[in-house]
Amino acid sequence: MRHEQQGQSEQKIVQAAQEGDLDSFAILYNRYHSPMVALGFSMLGDRDMADDAAGEAFAIACRDLSRLKSQEKFAAWLAGICRNVARQMLRATRAGEVVRTGGETTLKQDETEARRGAIRRAVAKLRGPERELIVLRYFDGFSQARISEVLGVSPQAVNSRLVRAKRKIAEYLKNDGFAGDSHETA
């Protein structure tokens, strides 16, 4: 019920933004900027580029907002724009290889860095949608409800996909030399 009320409230915010109210757009920006940065980071592997992608996505949303017919799908619509921007940046630069190599370019790695590198390599191996989910969950601790809005899937689907993604990560870590119990729950 509360989620439904919040959804209706956001629809009004989107509508006001469509009619040119900058304060309303600011609310949407503050609500979704961090998830968009996380989304960009899941594709680009570079924080600065992810910031740029998110900023660009909001600029495009500003321009095209009047064409959004389903106001309740603002978050998922914005996420689509952000993915597109990130893809374009990826095609232009290839910076995504940073996350794919998982920090292997670092010459001296203590155990912490080794673990971080292994985690990032494992995350990079996931399929795109799973990687997005994991990054959204752990980048800034977003709730399942928030992730559900951004990705346009139900909270139940978020939960079950998160479980599967973490199970895969645990298996990749095991194959990478971090042996142990691979049974995971969310």
């Binding site: 673990r115 971080r116 292994a118 985690i119 995350v123 752990y138 601790g141 645990a170 971090f178 119990d181």
Partner: peptide, 19 residues
Amino acid sequence: KRPEDNDRLDEALADAIGS
């Protein structure tokens, strides 16, 4: 510790990805 169990995996993911 190795990041293979639930809580430690959550912690490790937040540490590696979190910002």
